[in-house]
Design a protein around this nucleic acid. Structure first.
Lengths: 328, 328
DNA sequence: AAGCATGATGGAATCGTTTCCATGAACATG
DNA sequence: CATGTTCATGGAAACGATTCCATCATGCTT
């Protein structure tokens, strides 16, 4: 606060209105006051352009207002939309949102959790980055945590999209088109989606080939290398399911560079719908997840934390566009 | 803080270490202390798992640590990348980032500015949403503000991409291909880009048609309607420059639906490079702006606020892909 | 030896708001 | 009339960290 005029405090308002500071505080927070006193205080506060200091309030109340949000990567459209959902809900409650980016790394996540504890940020939404152990200190410190997109602890409520059902539907669709050699390009940490993939193949009596489940790290380069590797080394491949939008992107690029035609040579289904999925030629068939709703619902949950932890599962939806065809 | 054990305070550490609280504070913040005292205090703090409370610190120092960031839309790839740049820089300084989304609406922006003032968030980066008047209270309250992407006040430093040069290069490129009927699909608030467009046409001796400068609001629907309108009502159009990635998206979709072929019927240059620009068929020619750098540099600037306001301009770059052809 | 400067230390005050608790007034009930 | 309840009000305490300022010890210079 450099060279600024001294800000108006609650004491200034109390003095100018001829009441005590407790009365001003009560008036501004909806406590008991006579109508006449209330009007006088409100008029005085407006005249003096009084803005309560969140600093004093936070210390007295032993908590920071607002929501802490940790996501792996803000430039990934899915997390950006999830974040937008959180921001949208928080806005309607007048709550600021503090964001941290974990890089999908448990160590970075632990560090950011520490910062949240220092700030007594007692309402936290997170896309967790590990197996959930990093969250023990936060729970011990009494933070209200809600997980979004991934659920890694039984004692923490969450909001997730039904990715099992989504994967199952997509696999059923591809098998229905006659595909037998279907690959799953996954990111690390998507074991649930991978399990749904292999389980569905088994239940449909399609032999699963473990080498057709390929993992990529979080970077675009790694995604591209894994996608290109698949297309180059498995000429028998007729369909690919990708575990996220960045992996779908990598697959489209690799196919283009290797002159693999979609869907004629290889059919493609991408997990997550993003605006550009329609811009591709051909437009991509996707498993749409309600990212914004996940975020919005998580924010609702953390702002209205109930007694019992529970996890809300939102539906996914297969959107058939033009990136899949019959087995060649 | 529900049902949590009482957190360790600086008093606990002082007592256990046999020193005064001022000494503990000094040790933890790098002030003067003997080596022996320093070691004893650090060991005690670690043993008690002491975490300083940001609440007490903020009130005493009359400021919140961290950076406030206001962007128009977190789901727009450009702002997501800009945000990522801010987050990246802030992380290296250990500073949390609090985000607000303005919807590119000055009223919402004013509201969020009010929240920042209450929080005494004295370092703020913003993509401003109006003509800059909404920022007067923030400046009066002594907030250190840095604008990103748009510069609307002389008294506030900023980091912007050189969109004039970018537009000029693109227009020169299209005119070089023989195009005379070039439209500019702009978003409200992009007057500088529009001016560069019309100025460059004039300097190249190409008659400018005011009806070929079309404005769209911030929503995807509005963008699509404006794009479709252009293609439908101006059959003489041979090239389009769009003012941002969402407008480019709309143009691609509209062209596809109206069976306008890019680049055979209409050449297209999009302002801003996004990952999907390459996924299009054909891959889009773009004016790339260094969104991440803009954010990073803005954060550097606000964290190391100097004496004099100045604006840093980062270069843009024309990336020629396949969405432009000779005039038909 | 005397005076001054420096470094280390700690008690108390500060920051702005909320909340506790005591008091007074007004009203209702027995 | 006496007692109890409710509402409105205000002074003081609380919150946790930082910082101010006084004090002491030590070392250096004249």
């Amino acid at each position: 606060m450099n060279m600024a005029q001294r800000r108006t405090t609650i004491k200034d308002v109390a003095e100018a209105a001829g009441v005590g500071v407790a009365t001003v505080s009560r008036v501004l927070s909806g406590g008991s006051a006579s109508a006449e006193t209330r009007e006088r205080v409100l008029a005085t506060a407006a005249r003096l352009d009084y803005r309560p200091s969140a600093l004093g309030r936070n210390l007295r109340q032993q908590r920071s207002g607002g929501i802490g949000l940790l996501v792996p990567d803000i430039t990934d459209s899915f997390y950006a939309r999830l974040t937008d959902g959180v921001l949208s809900c928080a806005r309607s409650y007048g709550e600021p949102v503090t964001i941290g980016v974990t890089g999908d790394d448990p160590e970075q996540e632990a560090e950011l959790i520490g910062t949240l504890i220092e700030q007594s940020m007692d309402r936290v939404i997170a896309v967790p980055s590990g197996d959930g152990e990093t969250w023990a200190p936060a729970l011990r410190a009494g933070l209200n945590v809600v997980f979004a997109d991934r659920q890694v602890r039984d004692d923490v409520p969450g909001v997730v999209a039904d990715d099992r059902a989504g994967v199952r539907t997509a696999v059923e669709y591809l098998v229905g088109l006659g595909h037998k050699k279907i690959a799953f390009l996954a990111r690390h940490g998507q074991s649930q989606r991978v399990a749904a993939f292999t389980d569905t193949l088994a239940s449909l009596g399609v032999p699963a080939d473990p080498e057709l489940v390929v993992h990529a790290r979080a970077s675009r380069d790694s995604a591209y290398a894994a996608a290109a590797g698949l297309l180059q080394h498995r000429a028998d491949l007729t369909a690919v399911l990708t575990g996220g939008n960045m992996l779908g992107e990598a697959m489209v690029l690799a196919a283009r560079e290797l002159h693999v035609r979609i869907p004629r040579d290889v059919s493609l289904v991408m997990f997550d719908d993003v605006p550009w999925a329609e811009l591709c030629s051909p437009p991509l068939t996707v498993i749409a997840q309600p990212a914004q709703d996940v975020g919005y619902r998580a924010a609702e949950l953390v702002l209205r934390q109930g007694r019992r932890p529970r996890t809300v599962t939102l539906p996914t939806e297969l959107i058939v566009r033009a990136s899949c065809g019959p087995r060649r």
